[in-house]
Design a protein around this nucleic acid. Structure first.
Lengths: 225, 225
DNA sequence: ATAATAGTGTCTATAAGACAATATGTA
DNA sequence: TACATATTGTCTTATAGACACTATTAT
């Protein structure tokens, strides 16, 4: 079969929660097109490479995170004929959720990589159609926090209920009642499991440490304020 | 830029509810590979054609439905290197929800097209990775019925609450209490609007006719039995 | 009248959201 | 001690689900 000339790429929306804010990893483009503009990390799919393999490779290159325990999911595919001035390039967007990294952007390409508050990304400031991709991915993350235990993907392996609440507040951009949140999380079956130890790293009374439970969907779901 | 040889296609999961069952439109393949096997309708994206444009074109070819009011949404993209024996073909899957058609498969290619109960599609009976695509699309439809008014996409422009309930029961594969369902639908804001007239086409006491309301998400959501 | 479906009312258990009160650490 | 955060409890309101009951047509 002969095919039309076409490029296939993946773009990554890598989200984390730092300083109580939802942040995204962006790259300052060094070359045209859109030179000097912020863009999502991404690259072309190699021959014989699966789409998710490409995404994981790029995630490792940008963040140094090569673990397959990092949450990565496909969001959507963008293929408007004129979305890339270099030619027809179709991009499969992936969403990655990573914990607050002790060594941020430890990867190779990382000289130009920065964590940016998602609320600070102005309309029209990103290259290509990346503004739209970012918006779709953030909305996906917001929705999944309701009915999946995905918020734990932003946390270290052991976390307190307060820290988990901080994730929800950052992603949803809304304050939550600490007391109702605590009761709800601990009553939702298999959302979190107590580790048995406590920490005072958040100040105040020592808080129990939890790790992620076995649930894949939350019953009942968490509700957005 | 030069690109690796690569094909870009869209595949369609066209769902309807007929005879109280969730059915999918499948094509009997006339040529290799997978000659004689059932497959999802689909085809290659033309140069300068947007992905959704391709999907709508194929939807019209297979069903005769060219209206842009037909619900069509992207599900996911499948790109395993060996998913097509003819070479590297990446497929963007779309989900279409259509009402029970008075003239089924009125399109051109339609000689080999048939509505099949989704529950009758046996493991391994579909070409390529279409079994997986179908499963993903059906799960998407099931999930969206909970928090969106999408069930109305399976109904004619004017429908009764019973008919709407039949959609939920067919897609979810579970019976629902007619009385609680009625109250819930009519109390959910802007889910449905009464037309003002009634029909006896379902037998028994005349039922009010409704059309779809303005809501895009349901508050509160419908709950799966 | 009888059958069939439409639609309303009522009751109970569960969950959401507001917020008081208590617990246990650090400065 | 004062302060900060954790955790439990209580109350009100809303919703889910079960199910009795009434309403309106066709035959």
């Amino acid at each position: 079969m002969d095919f039309e000339p076409l490029g296939l790429a993946t773009d990554l929306v890598i989200l984390t929660v730092r300083d109580g804010r939802l942040q995204v990893l962006l790259i300052r483009r060094g070359i045209a097109p859109y030179q000097g503009r912020w863009a999502l990390p991404g690259g072309f799919v190699r021959p014989d490479e699966d789409l998710e393999t490409t995404a994981r490779r790029e995630l490792a290159e940008e963040t140094g995170l090569s673990s397959d325990r990092i949450h990565l999911e496909q969001v959507a595919t963008y293929g408007a004929p004129d979305r890339d001035p270099r030619g027809r390039v179709v991009s499969v967007a992936y969403l990655a959720l990573v914990p607050d990294l002790p060594a941020p952007t430890a990867g190779s390409d990382a000289a130009s990589a920065h964590w940016i508050n998602t609320t600070d990304v102005d309309a029209g400031s990103l290259a290509f159609d990346h503004q739209r991709i970012l918006a779709d991915a953030v909305e996906r993350a917001r929705a999944k926090l309701e009915y999946s235990p995905l918020a734990t993907a932003f946390c270290p392996p052991e976390f307190t209920i307060s820290e988990l609440r901080g994730v929800y507040e950052a992603v949803w951009g809304t304050p939550l009642d600490p007391r109702n949140f605590h009761r709800k999380v601990t009553k939702t079956t298999n959302f979190v499991e107590p580790v048995g130890s406590t920490t005072t790293r958040d100040g105040g009374r020592p808080a129990q440490l939890f790790h992620r439970g076995t649930a894949t969907t939350l019953h009942p779901p968490m509700t957005r304020g």
